[in-house]
Design a protein around this nucleic acid. Structure first.
Lengths: 327, 327
DNA sequence: GTGAAAGCGCTAACAT
DNA sequence: ATGTTAGCGCTTTCAC
């Protein structure tokens, strides 16, 4: 049960620790096939597992990639992590998850924790658009890639969905369906670039052709929508829910009220993770590909870790528009 | 940019590394308030972050908790991890995720990787019911708690949903609705205790009162259901989908075929993560609470790590039955 | 109340 | 082709 160390292996194989270390790091260039086999056998027999901590301490490489998501319980995060994990693994890295719980301070704590773990690199879904909120990170010099949300200005390579484009197309479809009143049901808009881009796309696409009302919520409560509808009994608007959770909250409320779409009002959303196809006539929505975002971000990060210079530019991953029958 | 170490702090504060170390580990008992303040200030000024690797190496405590889930991309995993992370954090632990990608060999690789990281403890959603598949783990002596699935016999404390009970109630409701033919649409049944318990509950609850047909799938394809229905055009069965993914696959197929429930057939499921309430008349299903499972498992693990002896027994977390209008 | 020193398990010159 | 040696940054006796 006592942990077997490199010294045990060296002794059992009748060689020095250095030789075993060379074996571990695959420096076989000038090692006799004989010792190589001997070491292999001893490692097998003793079931030796080199300690990552020890090697990290000496080599200054932990092979750890830190990932800080806005909210772990979100499906977006799951898929992002899935993508990151796939390519991190391929490059011999282990990921370490941090959660910001949708809070900037908690995000900083998470990042600092990961920094203390001496992660080789970091992938962050930033809570703040102000890059200076991450100055402590820059000082640390840890290679970093941002995902999902932009900072202004851009200080790090950033991989996001093409939110504006996809939403613009959605808005055009809404217009084509003849809607004059558009409600944007969305979380606090100043906090994330994605939210701004999504509402801006609606604003731009419908300029002069429809009225757009921003209905912000702090707690995912469709009450704001309810209030608006109560005040405007005559209109037949379309509601755009700014993410999957809001879309679900909205639909649950509609169901509760006995309202149906598109009869009582039009509905569309973002990020339904496939279930929206099953609801009523099928909810029209935009689909993102977080797995791909994670993969691309990790590819970039791996290059950064290897010392590549990568400019702080945005990489966009296309998002798809699914037109169904909800408006 | 050069990493500041304990020596730097010691030097700047005019004390020895030992004293700084005492400060870091909160051994204030016999330390002059004076030096304590001095060190605090220097740490602040230098923005010193102690290295986890170094302290782990010496103290044999990494404060790392390894979590190996069956499939990271599954929502169940997300919620499990959320729960684990909450309590792990409270106890000063960092979690490290491993993914089995629904494969026993990959699971072993993931576990061994985490073992090399010298995790203080491990939470595993086991791919195999045979505890001997994890003998290498037991040899390592790493404190372990299993979640979601049982091994036979039980070698570790295990936290699961009360699958049998919840499913039994669901089966009773199905009977009460008058169904004579029950189809169980489920993944390879031999692989996981949850699947056995869920089908067994149906079998037990309906014994002599209805015929139960097991329709196993390897790839989540509802084709097996389609085939059965084609062969039995006259009957009006109810289909139980053994998990959320299967339920979604089934419903998408039904929609595609223009079939509706409960008119053409009854439908019920497991793990719908709330969206099933929105589909058609609302799909009746069982809801699990993976966050709680994760929390409880972590509480147990923390005690194990602290040296407590905890018997290898099962802890059950209740699952809820949501009766809606789908059968 | 504080310091000196040894050492955790590994790596990487530098020797030979 | 392999061994010797000196640490990496921290913790922890044991002194004083």
């Amino acid at each position: 049960m006592a942990k077997v160390t490199i010294s045990d292996v060296a002794q059992a194989a009748g060689v020095s620790k250095a030789t075993v270390s060379r074996y571990l790091n695959k420096h076989f260039e000038r090692m006799s096939p004989n010792t190589r086999q001997k070491i292999a056998k001893v490692i097998e027999d003793l079931n030796y597992q080199p300690s990552f901590q020890a090697s990290a301490l000496k080599s200054n490489r932990t092979h750890l990639v830190g990932v800080v998501v806005a909210d772990v319980s979100n499906i977006y995060s799951t898929l992002l992590i899935t993508g990151i994990n796939q390519v991190a693994k391929d490059h011999g890295n282990q990921i370490m998850i941090g959660d910001a719980s949708d809070d900037l301070d908690q995000q900083q704590e998470s990042i600092e924790l990961l920094l203390r773990q001496n992660v080789d690199g970091l992938i962050i879904q930033p809570m703040s658009q102000n890059p200076h909120a991450y100055d402590y990170l820059r000082k640390s010099g840890t290679p970093t890639v941002m995902v999902d949300r932009l900072t202004k200005p851009l200080f790090w390579p950033t991989v996001t969905s093409d939110d504006y484009d996809a939403t613009y197309k959605l808005a055009q479809a809404v217009l084509a369906a003849g809607y004059q009143d558009i409600l944007i049901f969305i979380n606090e808009i100043s906090a994330a670039s994605t939210r701004q881009l999504r509402s801006q796309a609606f604003l731009d696409a419908t300029k002069g052709k429809a009225t757009v009302t921003l209905l912000e919520t702090q707690n995912d409560d469709p009450q704001v929508v309810a209030a608006w509808l109560a005040q405007h009994p005559k209109v037949h608007p379309v509601v755009f829910a700014g993410n999957g959770r809001l879309l679900m909250a909205l639909l649950l409320w509609l169901k509760d009220q006995g309202l149906t779409c598109p009869d009582d009002l039009g509905v569309c959303g973002y990020d339904d993770w496939r279930w929206a196809a099953l609801v009523g006539p099928g909810i029209s929505s935009v689909t993102q590909y977080p797995i791909q975002i994670g993969q691309q971000a990790t590819e970039l990060l791996v290059q950064l870790i290897d010392g590549a210079k990568i400019p702080a530019t945005q990489v966009k991953v296309a998002a798809d528009l699914n037109l169904r029958g909800s408006f």
